[in-house]
Design a binder for these strands. Structure first.
Lengths: 203, 203
DNA sequence: GTCAGGTAACTTACCCTAGGGTCACTTACC
DNA sequence: GGTAAGTGACCCTAGGGTAAGTTACCTGAC
């Protein structure tokens, strides 16, 4: 009889358990933000208790960092690749990047939210890492915005800066909407975004 | 000698003090979200202690509600007016609404953030009020998006929904950027947005 | 004028809970 | 019997919330 036991090992190897925890944590942190998320709630989702999270990740910050790194690395790599591959015209870049993001996070839609979590503390290691990822992400957006503007003979730095910030906000909104539409897969989202951009902007 | 005293009345009438507190609260809640904001910090900003906030507003929720109502009412009224006044073509609506928002909140830039605070609890009175304002705001966005799409012979409901959500996200991003640019006044922001839209979309 | 006392504007010092974090112990398997 | 996986029961602090008191001012009685 291998019935569920309240105490003792459940036979799940550490690596696998850690993955489960990071996935649950990503969802919880993504939904409620660093400040709003609770460790016992994350443990409960995984079907485990709080001390195990602390044994594996040391602290709330430790777990958050693990989630953040996983999300941030996948995202920055994916975007960097896409932007390197995609050539002219700059109007095609947004859809290409969106497609990459949708494909990367189809089964992990809250991951993006971690990179824009407004509730992370403003000091400490988390702050540093979060700022670093945001900085890189903003960098991509700035490059894209600059290419787009310059292709039209414009180069007001603050316009470019504003456009870049709006762009990351647009991605954020699309992902928020996507989270509420579980039936839409990555391909459907890409298609929808392409259609909208063609119709509204002629891009 | 009317030196500052640590105890006793400071001679500031309740109404004026309440206004100060709501302004400070709006900024603090806007910056850190409901969850991240601290009552003592808000009190400290005003130069007063925590119990006074509780005497005047009853609870953290009470103060938050006061801030939320002030921001929400001003915003929804302003937008409703603008959308009623502004006629065809639908491409002009976005800039008109942006202008109204910038003018309304030029000296109170964090107010908008309250309407999109992701850290408000999901139950209770605050949740209800917040959802109500968001619902109204989304309603405006949906109307605008529908007009825009239909003027081009399109009417996919989910496209319209996605566009509406992106639009509120765009406003959010612009305001975030604006908060970091204290030297830009409302007129400058409107002008910048108009220029960008003309250049990028031909609107 | 001045002096009691009522009231509005405050504060100090405290309570209480949620949630981060830890310790010592238990079970299962090799 | 050693080790990895896991837990119940606890500690501690930050922050929401409160009770009881303190100061300044206004008002009317004398």
């Amino acid at each position: 009889m291998t019935e569920a036991r309240a105490v003792g090992t459940k036979g799940v190897p550490r690596e696998e358990r850690e993955t489960q925890i990071v996935r649950a944590g990503t969802e919880e942190f993504g939904k409620n933000g660093y400040a709003g998320a609770s460790m016992v709630e994350i443990a409960r989702r995984v079907g485990v208790t709080k001390p195990l999270l602390y044994q594996y990740f040391g602290s709330k910050d430790g777990l958050y960092l693990a989630c953040l790194h996983r999300a941030g690395d996948r995202l920055t790599e994916g975007v960097a690749e896409t932007m390197a591959a995609e050539a002219e015209p700059p109007e095609r870049m947004p859809l290409a990047v969106l497609s990459a993001i949708f494909e990367t996070f189809d089964n992990d839609r809250y991951a993006w939210k971690l990179l824009r979590d407004p509730t992370v503390p403003s000091t400490g290691e988390i702050a540093g890492v979060a700022i670093d990822y945001r900085y890189r992400l903003d960098g991509f957006a700035l490059v894209g915005a600059a290419q787009l503007m310059r292709s039209r003979g414009l180069d007001d730095d603050r316009d470019i800066e504003a456009i870049a910030q709006v762009w990351t906000g647009v991605v954020d909104s699309l992902i928020s909407w996507w989270i509420d539409q579980p039936d839409q897969d990555a391909a459907a989202m890409t298609e929808r975004c392409g259609r909208i951009m063609r119709n509204l902007f002629g891009w």
